[in-house]
Design a binder for these strands. Sequence first.
RNA 1: GGCGCGUUCGUCUAGUGGCUUAGGACGCUGCCCUCUCAAGGCAGAGACCACGGGUUCGAAUCCCGUACGCGCUACCA
Length: 500
Amino acid sequence: MISEKPRVRFAPSPTGYLHVGGLRTALYNYLFAKNRDGKFILRIEDTDRNRFVEGAVENLIASLKWCGLEYDEGPDIGGTYGPYMQSQRLEIYKEHVKELIAEGKAYYCFCTPERLDELRKEQQAKKLPQAKYDKHCLRLSKAEIEENLNGGVDYVVRLNVEPDKKIVFDDVVRGHIEFESNNVDDQVLIKSDGYPTYHLANVVDDHLMKITHVIRGEEWLSSTPKHVLLYDFFGWERPVFAHLPLLLNPDRSKLSKRQGDVAVEDYRAKGFLKEALINFVALLGWNAGDDKEFYYIDELIEKFSLDRVNKSGAVFDLEKLNWLNAEHLRKKTDEEILPMLKKEIHNITEESTDINQQPELQLIKNRNFDDEYLLKIISAMKERVSFVREYLTKSPYFFAAPEKYEEAAVLKNWKPETPPVLQKLRDEFSALQNPGKEEYENALAKTAEGLNIGKGKIIHPLRLSVSGISTGPGLYDILVILGKDEVIKRINTALEKIKV
RNA sequence: GGCGCGUUCGUCUAGUGGCUUAGGACGCUGCCCUCUCAAGGCAGAGACCACGGGUUCGAAUCCCGUACGCGCUACCA
């Protein structure tokens, strides 16, 4: 068993998108499988017809693939234990449940929803410790059951839980866990529409698909006794269980839509790198026992183990995700960033950059920039950005001449004596042939010296003239990137436009 | 309400009985670097290890109780 190569699965229900909590579950399954040279399987738990969402499966798969979590078997690629959509396995569940019924381990129930409702209300009124089905239909005779079945009466199949038993199992992250069978309800296994419930389907499929380790969210811990019972009733070996701690909102409630983004596609749209998202989410509930925080997925695969998974929920902290994004982005080569920048330029929208704040970006969208030029920008801005998008928003002046000038900087750096100084400098620059950093620097120094003023008196207004703002890469780097003609043009524009 | 699980700086966490005056990271503050902003370096604030009892020569670490939080309690997953 231990030497066996594990087979694990990620089994989401297709609700429309991949939740980051789901991503974490998928990732741990993936890391565990790859670490042990096992198989990672995707199975779609679409047994609730009321919750059917068009395109949900495709969306889920797209997000999973974007993250790089390739599975070995799944609905779109098949595999030896398919199909991998539960809605396509209905007959399998029915056959298995027949077995259980024949052995008295499950039974038909013809109770109407109305009776169930009443029963529940009654139990609540009596303040019974727990609301449970009363096994009413277990007492039906064979003949009565036959009659109902033949008469086409709606029915469900229920698990026959024996009273007064201890149900025990071990969980890799939580240890030994015990439940009283008296607290376990006679769970519905087959619904009246013929579809199985999660509890039946996941056990049958996990067994048939030879799943060795069930790694899933903590919300399943309470229903694990039902699953354990099912394994025992079928006479099947139980998989190893590992229940993962939940991902939390800042207020420590279960991570939800209401308090921010929860879908992987949201983070993708915001410009997060998949490397950062994976790295971040991996550390939410697991660590290697050392101080390492920056990981690539290969290193995660190498280091991951279930016994280092934490027990308590983790708050999804955006600040740290931002930091990791910046770290991963900086680690990329300029050449790797180039196509990303080009894509960003191409896809620029009002939403993504708040063009209203930076009207000059309006002009960028359909312009083409030389790779060589973009590479220079990347090199100059790399350690100043956390997102690819910020190459545009933090240094729009590389893409279009400034249309307005930062007010605070104007007030601080643009004095009555500034215009003549810049005119002098402009003339000095005009005389240069193919200037590089040093030439600009020398020319500026010479101007300052000639005027008998500090270099700062020129540097700051010049930065403002060419960029419109007061922050950014070294001034001479900016000048070199923009080129002499553009620099002179911008000085002239500034001299015209900036009035104090 | 019942059942289950959890509880170390604001957040993610290290810690598996003495190495701990509880370590790291994000964020925050200050300093250095510097034409600005970053990055980087250094320093700092920040946790009576939820609380109360035990066990032990010794407990964040083991046991019990309490509180609080979360999950489940469906013909949803």
